[in-house]
């Protein structure tokens, strides 16, 4: 059963990533990205990494995607209207059914040829909050601090670009 869920989620992740790239409507792309993140979170859950799964949803699917949608909707309003007028339930159902059938096929082929991996038992201990926290503050202490520095620099840089006015007469075009 777990292997079947794995194949389903893997196919869903790849399919939604493809759909995100192919889709012409930016809002649809963003929504497919959310779907991609959720299926990745599912994969993490299968690996018994609850913490990573929750963070995946919280950080990516939650905060970043809301931001993404805001930007898209602020940039061109027509997309928002076309999203609700053109969105059809049957396409979505067709997408899901297609994924289900395709992953079923892959699962059958995979189990017939005995190619599917098993989850290693030591993986189950690595994904908890305690384990992640402990590693973060001992083994990965220095990278952790440099990431903090990186984020500070990123915020500072974004502020710098946004804050300073374009100097009059500096334009050369």
């Amino acid at each position: 059963m777990i292997t079947y869920i794995f194949v389903f989620l893997a196919v869903l992740a790849v399919a939604s990533a493809l759909a995100m790239v192919i889709s012409k409507n930016t809002v649809n792309s963003a929504l497919f990205l959310v779907l991609n993140m959720v299926s990745l979170a599912g994969l993490f859950l299968l690996l018994k990494a609850q913490f990573l799964a929750v963070i995946q949803i919280l950080v990516y699917a939650g905060a970043i995607m809301v931001l993404f949608l805001f930007v898209i909707m602020l940039l061109n309003v027509e997309d928002e209207e076309s999203l609700f007028s053109r969105f059809r339930v049957k396409y979505f159902v067709a997408f899901l059914v297609g994924i289900a059938v395709f992953s079923q096929l892959l699962y059958s082929i995979g189990s017939f040829s005995e190619m599917l991996p098993e989850v290693a038992p030591e993986m189950t201990e690595a994904g908890t909050v305690e384990a992640v926290g402990e590693v973060l503050y001992s083994q990965y202490l220095l990278p952790f601090h440099i990431i903090a520095l990186l984020l500070t620099a990123a915020v500072n840089g974004a502020l710098m670009i946004a804050q300073h006015k374009i100097k009059p007469g500096a334009s050369n075009d």
């Binding site: 990965y140 990186l150 840089g157 374009i166 100097k167 334009s171």
Partner: peptide, 28 residues
Amino acid sequence: NLIMIFIGIETMSICLYVLAGIIKGQKI
């Protein structure tokens, strides 16, 4: 360690992306 290499490259690059654009009044 590969993690250090990745974070080092990213810290360096993100600062450089910003610094490349400080003359924002010009197209180039």
